[in-house]
């Protein structure tokens, strides 16, 4: 606060000298705090690199063709993660397939139709809450909704749980992107006599295609690594299964089970799976950013 008052009466030059103790103190406080903030940045980066390094060194040891061709082994023997990888692809794919149309339609409603209406305001608020809602609670919800009713854990239940997590991401990005479209574009289309649904689907939505794809990719990245909601929904399966209405193996739950086990072979596979899942998630994130940057240039 002192800085705002001081210079009004006294010229700055006389204060900003090395022998003014107040000035010296301010300079040192500044240097110290900036050094601390560089250290904070380094702190964050160290953990990122440390985690990636650990994953690379531990995961690569178990990486090989067997990982993609063999099934999850019984304790104490070698194997792969083929069924878990397949299960994850199925569950996550189904989740995104469910979430994308819901998310885009709701996003269109918020940005183009509802705008400042009460329903739109409440939806926006609820969507923001769901965006950060604890994923394990969503697992509980889907357990009560699907698993308890059909008396069976299933791949579909897992897909629905992941879809509930993916929808808010797609809604949020679709709405944000649509709001970037200048109104003059909408007005031009309306002036040509187009009904609103054509304005939206052919003009505004097209203008932000890249942004919407970014949103879907980010949702995909977000749900690919989610473990908690799958624990009570798709559970796990030791064997190859293509039946989405039965318990299904999936990478995150297998990693969890194997990492917590005392068997060395299982732990090695868990690291390999962890490396695989992290590479996929990071690649999706970077891809989403590139798509977004290119389409918006």
């Amino acid at each position: 606060m002192s800085t705002r008052e001081a210079p009004s009466s006294i010229p700055t030059q006389s204060l900003a000298t090395p022998d003014n103790p107040i000035y010296r103190r301010r300079v040192w406080v500044n240097r110290f705090n900036l050094a601390v903030s560089i250290a904070a940045m380094a702190f964050g980066m160290v953990f990122l690199l440390w985690i990636l390094f650990t994953l690379a060194s531990k995961g690569l040891a178990a990486f090989g063709p067997a990982l993609f061709t063999q099934m999850t082994p019984p304790p104490g023997s070698d194997g792969g993660l083929a069924n878990a990888i397949f299960g994850s692809v199925m569950i996550v794919g189904a989740a995104i397939f469910i979430a994308t149309p819901i998310g885009i339609m709701a996003g269109i409603y918020l940005a183009e139709i509802g705008r400042e209406s009460a329903i739109a305001k409440v939806t926006r608020f609820v969507n923001d809450i769901l965006l950060s809602a604890p994923s394990i609670v969503i697992g509980l919800f889907v357990y009560a909704l699907i698993v308890a009713r059909f008396k069976q854990y299933s791949g579909w239940a897992g897909a629905v749980a992941l879809a509930i997590i993916a929808v808010p991401v797609v809604v949020r990005t679709t709405e944000t992107m649509l709001l970037l479209v200048p109104n003059s574009m909408r007005e031009a289309a309306i002036a040509l006599g187009a009904p609103q649904w054509r304005v939206v689907t052919m003009v505004t939505l097209r203008a932000v295609k890249g942004g919407v794809i970014t949103g879907v990719l980010l949702a995909l990245a977000r749900v690919s690594g989610e473990t908690a909601p799958l624990l009570f929904t798709s559970l796990n399966n030791q064997f190859w299964s293509t039946d989405m209405s039965a318990p299904m193996a999936n990478l995150p739950v297998v990693i969890f089970q194997f990492a917590m086990s005392p068997y060395e072979e299982w732990q090695r596979l868990a690291w390999a799976g962890a490396l695989l899942i992290t590479l996929v998630v990071l690649a999706l994130n970077i891809l989403a950013r590139t798509v977004f940057r290119q389409k918006n240039k």
């Binding site: 964050g44 980066m45 953990f47 990122l48 440390w50 985690i51 650990t54 994953l55 990245a221 690919s224 690594g225 989610e226 473990t227 908690a228 995150p252 990693i255 969890f256 990492a259 868990a270 690291w271 962890a274 899942i277 992290t278 998630v281 990071l282 994130n285 970077i286 950013r289």
Partner: peptide
């Protein structure tokens, strides 16, 4: 900035194992 955001992208199970 991207690197900091990637820290958020790492799945939580990885943090747990690490």
């Amino acid at each position: 900035g991207t690197a900091v955001e990637l820290l958020a992208a790492i799945p939580s199970i990885i943090y747990g194992m690490w």
